[in-house]
């Protein structure tokens, strides 16, 4: 039996096991989930060992020139293991701080330089008629800009919950904010709808792929 056939069989079995969730939570589904988690974790561990620890930490230690440089990362690496024990978890605080600091720096820098500024610039450029190649482009650009601006403002206005007590004792927001919130509710609903559609299409595509796999398996198994 070839490996492909064996993998196909296991694939079919696991697919059906996952499909059993339609009947509710059951042991077959749980077994399939546990196997996937286990296999994924094992593969990840293997990849980390072979692609990270060995080539980047252990093999350089053989080189005396790199030993001095790699001692510090080696110590920090083992210090992170202390996080497993609450009593000595304080030992890995420095290594954790280095990781958090470096990650935060890269993330913040990229967020500011790669998202915040460019996005603001793009929002401003939407109202720049000079950048538009044609009048229609400018018009549609302006229209998209307005819609984008309104959506942003109205969505942010929806999350403004400050209110005051009216004469009749009821708690109400300002009428202007109430109008903005209602429009912002529409934008939020549209956004959620788009996201739901995207998720549905992704899931539908995945389901089609799985059904196709099963059908093709049986077709090949049957010989159709």
């Amino acid at each position: 039996m070839s490996l492909d056939l064996l993998s196909a069989i296991f694939g079919l079995i696991f697919t059906l096991m996952v499909f059993s969730y339609l009947l509710g939570d059951n042991p077959l589904f749980r077994v399939a989930v546990y196997i996937f988690v286990g296999v994924s974790s094992g593969y990840a561990a293997t990849v980390v060992w072979h692609y990270v620890l060995v080539p980047k930490l252990f093999e350089p230690l053989r080189d005396p020139n790199q030993l001095v440089i790699l001692v510090i990362p080696l110590i920090l690496c083992f210090s992170l293991l202390a996080k497993l024990t609450p009593r000595i978890s304080w030992i890995g605080n420095f290594a954790m701080a280095v990781l958090v600091g470096v990650g935060a720096a890269a993330a913040i820098g990229g967020a500011v330089l790669g998202t915040l500024i460019p996005q603001v610039q793009a929002a401003i450029d939407a109202f720049d008629f000079r950048a538009a190649p044609s009048a229609s482009d400018a018009f549609f650009g302006l229209l998209s800009g307005i819609v984008m601006l309104m959506g942003t403002v109205f969505t942010l206005g929806y999350f403004h919950f400050s209110a005051e007590r009216a004469a009749d004792g009821k708690i109400r927001r300002n009428r202007v904010f109430e109008l903005i919130a209602s429009i912002g509710r529409i934008f939020i609903a549209i956004t959620f709808g788009v996201l739901f559609a995207g998720v549905y299409m992704s899931a539908l595509t995945a389901m089609i792929e799985r059904l196709g796999f099963v059908i093709n398996f049986f077709r090949q198994f049957i010989g159709i």
């Binding site: 996005q119 793009a122 788009v194 996201l195 995207g198 998720v199 299409m201 992704s202």
Partner: peptide, 17 residues
């Protein structure tokens, strides 16, 4: 991108990033 991630990455497309 997947259909679920596409709308979230659209701003980057609009900004020509």
């Amino acid at each position: 991108a997947s259909a679920q991630a596409g709308p979230l990455l659209q701003p980057y497309v609009s900004s020509r990033q």
